[in-house]
């Protein structure tokens, strides 16, 4: 899946506004192109959620790095799980970890 590879590469570039919107866009495409609709829908919502929190305000480097550190690994694991076609149960577990990291980062 070309878009999945693109999503992984975009994730590796880091967490900043333009990139978050790009990842949200890729997730939207992937949600309609693959069977993992819920996973990509949730990821898209998370990227947009972070982008909206960071839009139109000063974003200290430390804050961006902290969120990036919290989120990159679980997101990478989820993308890899989808790439390697793990079971739906494992995808759900990986997705839970992504959501948990998001909540830890912002709640």
């Amino acid at each position: 899946m070309a878009n999945l590879q693109q999503l992984r590469e975009t994730l590796e570039k880091g967490f900043y506004l333009d990139n978050l919107y790009e990842m949200a866009h890729l997730c939207k495409t992937l949600a309609s192109d693959t069977i993992y609709l819920a996973a990509f829908f949730v990821m898209r919502d998370i990227f947009l959620g972070i982008a909206r929190r960071w839009e139109e305000r000063a974003l200290p480097v430390e804050e961006a790095k902290r969120v990036e550190w919290e989120m990159t690994k679980p997101l990478g694991d989820l993308i890899q799980g989808i790439e390697t076609k793990v079971s739906a149960e494992v995808v759900l577990d990986l997705l839970n970890k992504v959501v948990s990291s998001y909540l830890v980062s912002f709640e």
């Binding site: 900043y16 139109e56 000063a58 974003l59 200290p60 480097v61 430390e62 961006a64």
Partner: peptide
């Protein structure tokens, strides 16, 4: 205009933030 270390929308780092 704020001074500090900021991540810009483009991902670049800057010593200033201007809105």
């Amino acid at each position: 205009l704020l001074q500090g270390k900021f991540t810009l929308a483009s991902g670049k780092k800057s010593n200033h933030y201007f809105e």
